[in-house]
Nucleic acid binder design. Structure first.
Lengths: 152, 152
DNA sequence: TTATTTTATATGTATATACACCTATTGATT
DNA sequence: AATCAATAGGTGTATATACATATAAAATAA
């Protein structure tokens, strides 16, 4: 869908400003198409993100700060997201022996299992709405990374 | 910055999946570089978004539902965002005469003034980190719209 | 060693998202 | 007209963002 129709406006001050709004809107769009599927597993995007990060290092543990560094949204409050996952017994907390300030997080069998089912479901959804070619995806990745060239 | 460095991983199942994460991360990045500026005006991104929408139709009023339709994030709780803006006297609520279910929202002089100053500040920030050409921005817009081709 | 600074995590607060549900009003149906 | 359904906006709840602050442990400096 054209951005003009998504936002009901055509007042863009430049192509670059339109691109900014287009990225923000597309990010919302991407989240919204998968949130229903995640809800079926009683997971939020952020909880799913944490589980995915933990699986990447499994069976190694990760401390809270190392999870935070890998989050898509860096301002995520990781301890609180872990609280919810811990209640559902999808992760386990232990205090690090080598540095008692650190809390080590491990994904449980149950966490791995729910991650596998939900990932499989999300992959199907993404495959079903796939409209761009691999070449176009590469191009998109290049443009986004060029956009973020300025370090802030 | 490369996405690999932003998320400290290189486990992407495809270019398309990487593009998905790249869009989500870039959206967060774009918000984060302007949130400090907005904070100086005691505005959140969503409050700014509502003011911008209202200015687009000024001096006409807009009802809550018409604002919601123009929001970047369609799941925004517009009545609550308007609550905060009303407390700060940046917008005004009136009940519609023609349909008493509707609440009409108008941006105040004070709202217009704060919108102008903050927009000017945001434009400066965006200009200072501008790294892509107009042609690249156009290309980016095309790719994002192609990505969203599937109606959901 | 003691004091200071830094680091890791947790907690507090305001606002937002996401979604369910309630209430009042309008429009349609019988 | 009375009933029912649809619509608009407001409210409630759980979780998240964004950011400030607190607390405990570790690293460094005095």
């Amino acid at each position: 869908m054209k951005l003009e129709n998504a936002l009901l406006t055509n007042k863009f001050s430049s192509e670059a400003q339109k691109a900014t709004l287009n990225i923000l809107y597309t990010a919302w769009w991407l989240k919204s198409i998968t949130s229903k599927e995640l809800k079926d597993f009683d997971l939020t995007h952020e909880q799913y993100n944490v589980l995915r990060i933990l699986k990447g290092k499994y069976p190694d543990e990760l401390c809270v700060k190392d999870i935070a560094r890998r989050m898509i949204e860096k301002s995520s409050n990781v301890p609180r997201i872990i609280d919810r996952l811990e209640i559902k017994k999808l992760v386990k907390r232990t205090v690090s022996e080598s540095d008692k300030r650190e809390t080590l997080i491990t994904i449980t069998k149950s966490g791995l299992s729910i991650l596998e089912s939900s990932t499989s479901k999300l992959n199907k959804v993404h495959a079903s709405i796939q409209t761009i070619t691999q070449k176009e995806a590469e191009q998109l990745n290049c443009l986004l990374e060029k956009l973020r060239a300025t370090e802030v």
